[in-house]
Design a protein around this nucleic acid. Sequence first.
DNA 1: CTAAACTGAGTACGCCGTACGGAGATCGGC
DNA 2: GCCGATCTCCGTACGGCGTACTCAGTTTAG
Lengths: 254, 254
Amino acid sequence: MASAKTGRSDPARTLALLWRGKEPAARGPKPGLGVDRIVAAAVELADEEGLAAVSMRKVAERLGVGAMSLYTYVPGKDELLNLMVDAVLAEADRPADFTGTWREGLELHARADRAVALRHPWLVGLSTPGLMLMGPGETARAEFAMRAVSDIGLTPREMADVVNMVDGYVRGVAQISADIGATNRETDVGYEDWWAQATPMLERFIQQSRYPALYGVWAAGAFETPPEEGFEFGLQRVLDGIEAWIDGRTAVPG
Amino acid sequence: MASAKTGRSDPARTLALLWRGKEPAARGPKPGLGVDRIVAAAVELADEEGLAAVSMRKVAERLGVGAMSLYTYVPGKDELLNLMVDAVLAEADRPADFTGTWREGLELHARADRAVALRHPWLVGLSTPGLMLMGPGETARAEFAMRAVSDIGLTPREMADVVNMVDGYVRGVAQISADIGATNRETDVGYEDWWAQATPMLERFIQQSRYPALYGVWAAGAFETPPEEGFEFGLQRVLDGIEAWIDGRTAVPG
DNA sequence: CTAAACTGAGTACGCCGTACGGAGATCGGC
DNA sequence: GCCGATCTCCGTACGGCGTACTCAGTTTAG
């Protein structure tokens, strides 16, 4: 594994960077690069070779430039990772003119996030900036979600809780899927192949006598296909839970 | 940020390591260390200084030993990280003699995971071995959860989906909380302080006119306390969703 | 035209994971 | 009791990393 932290150092600088708040500057030579090109190159690199392959030298090489040139535009690697997260979050299309029920809105929100996570498996390996370092992508996400749960009589805090719950579910499941995907990529075997290969070894340790419930589920083949299909199932259950709560809630005071 | 991948190289070797399947070996000098002591030292280090501080050299130093000595017991850093994950997962106490409803069982399961995640914030930054590389800790977790949803008429696949959904929710929310905790630790300011400090900067970018829904929730102060309190709320909604589905399901064929 | 301001990058430092090989300890077989 | 096999421990070294420092070269304001 490798782990990633995001958002250290000066928050003001990072926020300005996220929102591209920089006047073009006179006096010097014209910039040959730019934050956008650097971030795009880093995202490509991560998509193709994984997060571990993203180093300042490799990103620079991809741009035909010396490693240290990147530091003209980006304070450091942490900030670059932050920018990458916000950039791919902005990819998801959440129609600005969306009108629909809160449930349809949250469904769209959740699926958009999931699509991004599947397209960029390295995303879930990075800590979210969350509300701490909101860039345009993260902000657009949040705005869409909040709009979906507006006008149904929730307090602001309840709105935040509901959205956080859906976000949490999507992130957690995406991370589990991404782990499996990463394992497959690294070992060059598919999920089924890996499973077939690992079964004899697992049999040695996970005996029916010690883990009867797990063994039963396992022996029935419930783990033989990747859990991705369970995403929609879980999403609907999450939304059902919210719906029941909303119904119960509006019924009381109404 | 830093990201972590887990479970590369030889799965058989790693599995054997996770289950400590090693005969004590005659012939050589008595081992001075041991997998358990190495893992414990690494976990301590991660708890105290964060995941980024976990290097082979630092772990070895903490044990009063040369860096390369660790490789006698552990094939590499990836495997050590895997062992750390399984070790802390095993910490959670899930009573073996638990009897209760499926809902009580899943609640206990979810809270146990959350307690571990709060005690070891670095955990969520690591990919889960998941089902790919199950050690004793992960297996005990899964067994408890599966037992909780046994005997309520679910198919094995449905059991797996339900458990995966709860696990996903807990993981996702824990990761969001951990990110905030990490930001606080690194910047040496509390959540409220950070928020107060960042507000003027955010005001510049997140204008009411462009993000009315988000702005409203934000201006109402819904983000001024950490979202940890929302965990129980979301958990209950998740369980409500499952309950509604189970009721609807058993009602039809019954 | 000059000087200020900026871009771009070479060099270097201190970390990291870990391959390699050797020194010393320990024990089975004789 | 001894020897060789086998094990533990670890010093050295290599290639890669993030990035501090420094300086050369370019562009424009005045």
